[in-house]
Design a protein around this nucleic acid. Structure first.
Lengths: 223, 223
DNA sequence: GTCTATAACACGATAGAC
DNA sequence: GTCTATCGTGTTATAGAC
């Protein structure tokens, strides 16, 4: 593609890369905008020219990693048909992609938690990136040979995205070496989730499931 | 009890009350420590003498509201035996108690999301308050006449506390008038939860449930 | 449109005197 | 316990250069 990015794009990328590196090295809070600008060899004003705020650097990082997550999910989506393997592969891909940033992910998570802020994963500004990731889970479901109750099928990608958010929640709190516990969480919850999906066929579960889906449809859009 | 609080306790309470009032009136971010100190008639340094940081004011608020939640849950716990009614009553009590602070709860939520920060509901510093609230859910279960599978019984209070956190997550994002949607969420999820607990008796569910409980025991304590 | 340099502002937080 | 003075940092403003 375009080997030659415009000068602005280059500067923007330089500032972002520098910021991410300093965040990795010294943490988010302890990295000042002045330090980022100095290390990148630009003025503070220039950094603010490309990023409206320090938090917007996190958003750029978030969008960037969502794309890497999509790419890292490609192999398993192209090679596996079993639902559990597909889901497990995509979640592990997420953890792999984000591993280098685990140290400062807390700060990222904190700004993401601001309910009406632009960084919230539920916000309008996050909609494009959210759609991009939800699309992975649509493909996880669509490309699987596992039988899925039709009532559940359309809502399932959104539920799996929510499940992904749950894994993120555990991950940011995970202090085990190499976030081993998060990988264990993925490996052990995925079979449970798939079994629950299978259980949805049974008469006794159908009542609960239908009510749940009905509830989700009626309450979505609180933000 | 002690009609005469020490001077320190009085000053502390004065600062806290003033802060909460200003948070309600102008929001958390827009209320400065200078404004709190000025309005309370003390110096900024004195405010910091009693509260290590602005966020610690939120912690004091959180502890205070946990106590009010316990008190507000008393009536339903003393009068109802049905599990669904008890659970519903306690959750609605939480929403009632926190209603006046919904506007600035987002800021509170944001600082609570910092994984290794002292405000995280999973942190060691939060353990006493968390225990206090979990105790409500232990009582919800213990005082109920609904049949609960023994395997589930001991872990259930913790799971219900987690469920409460889920309701909080929805609540902070809820922009409906009077957070009507949150009350709807409570009213409609509680029967589902209770039905799921009942389903735990069935053979097909037992496998999933046992694995889940096993997983929880093995992964708890990631923080 | 892209970038620099410098100063200034607001606010959370701290130091040290009394 | 309480105060005043001061610091560090995110952010903005100004005034311009290429």
């Amino acid at each position: 593609m375009a080997e030659t990015a415009t000068r602005g794009e280059q500067t923007r990328a330089l500032i972002l890369d520098t910021a991410l590196r300093l965040f990795e090295e010294h943490g988010y809070e302890r990295t000042t905008m002045r330090a980022i600008a100095a290390e990148a060899g630009v003025s503070v004003g220039n950094a603010y020219y490309y990023f409206d705020s320090k938090e917007h650097l996190i958003r750029a990082f978030y969008d960037h990693n969502a794309e890497r997550h999509v790419a890292a999910s490609r192999p398993v989506l192209d090679s596996e048909r079993d639902l559990a393997r597909r889901l497990r592969g995509v979640l592990r891909a997420w953890a792999d992609v984000n591993a280098p940033y685990h140290e400062f992910a807390g700060a990222f998570f904190k700004t993401a938690a601001d309910p009406h802020g632009p960084m919230s994963p539920f916000s309008r500004e996050s909609a494009p990136t959210r759609a991009q990731v939800t699309e992975i889970y649509r493909e996880v479901v669509a490309g699987s040979d596992t039988k899925i109750p039709p009532a559940l099928r359309s809502e399932l990608p959104n539920l799996l995205w929510l499940f992904n958010m749950g894994v993120v929640l555990y991950w940011v709190h995970d202090r085990s070496a190499g976030t081993a516990k998060t990988y264990e969480l993925i490996d052990r919850t995925v079979p449970l989730v798939v079994r629950l999906i299978g259980l949805a066929r049974f008469r006794v579960m159908r009542g609960v499931l239908d009510d749940l889906l009905d509830l989700i449809r009626s309450l979505s859009g609180a933000t």
